[in-house]
Design a binder for these strands. Structure first.
Lengths: 141, 141
DNA sequence: CTGAGTAGGTTTGATTTCGCAACTGATGTA
DNA sequence: TACATCAGTTGCGAAATCAAACCTACTCAG
């Protein structure tokens, strides 16, 4: 988790990924839609590129022009984005500014499930196994 | 999404929530396990409290001592945390520092599904419906 | 040919946040 | 008495953020 946040936890990073995942590949559009300062956005996109989350592709030689697309890692971030959006719709705003219609006919509401058994994940069903030491646990249970 | 990040997107915020969700309710333990500077952590916890994600409870009068617990909103953030952890395990580290054993017998690997049809969410199955204007869409599809 | 617009940034300078270390105050423990 | 616990606060320098202007290299309208 900490490592994930190291890669995509900086300000504007996830919003930039969201824009690209919506098909907005161009710098100016991403900047407009996220509201990020241009210099920060430029820095984030480079960091995300270095992290292997987005790829920069040149679509014009003269003048040099680039667009961004998601790598496999970036695509899989969509799951996080969707979970975050579901939470935000419920807890961070009065009324959602947008919605996703899902192919099943309903508006999208997401749940996080275990891939093996398909059950929605419940805190009580988890047993944490620490593989690398250096982690403190205190208190009951 | 942007609103969600406004509440929990600052540095250390999600790691603090993770610790509390692991049952580490005390300031010192959260500070140790996250590695956050104490002053930043104090600021985050106040912000999270104001955002309604965590609650602060006094467990001792003299001296005054407090501990933190998740509100309903905080509990539901677990879904985001789990998705983020799954992504991080795959893309942000060489080998995961910890794992969750799930009650079904396997180690936990998560998927994000539609609550209505139970299908894993696929980008192609979504149709974005903007309810509040001020959002630019460019390029194909 | 001039001027405006587009595109993808970079630069500048002010503001904010961050991080670290030390300190506090009330208490309990050796 | 001395030390440790707990939940922070304080002071201060370093780093990140922001808004706005600027730059380069085109394209297009007039």
């Amino acid at each position: 988790m900490a490592a994930a946040l190291n890669l995509v936890g900086e300000k504007w990073a996830l919003l930039a990924v969201r824009e690209i995942s919506f098909g907005n590949k161009r710098f100016d559009v991403i900047a407009r839609n996220t509201g990020a300062p241009r210099d920060r956005l430029a820095a984030r996109l480079r960091a995300l590129e270095a992290a292997g989350v987005v790829a920069r592709r040149q679509y014009s030689d003269h003048p040099p022009r680039y667009e961004y697309e998601l790598t496999q890692a970036g695509e899989e971030l969509r799951a996080v984005l969707l979970a975050l959006r579901t939470w935000g719709d419920k807890w961070a705003v009065d009324s959602p500014p947008a919605a996703f219609g899902h192919s099943c006919g309903h508006d999208l509401d997401t749940a996080v499930v275990c891939r093996h058994c398909g059950e929605e994940v419940n805190p009580d069903d988890l047993r944490l196994r620490v593989l690398t030491p250096g982690w403190t646990r205190r208190g009951p249970a």
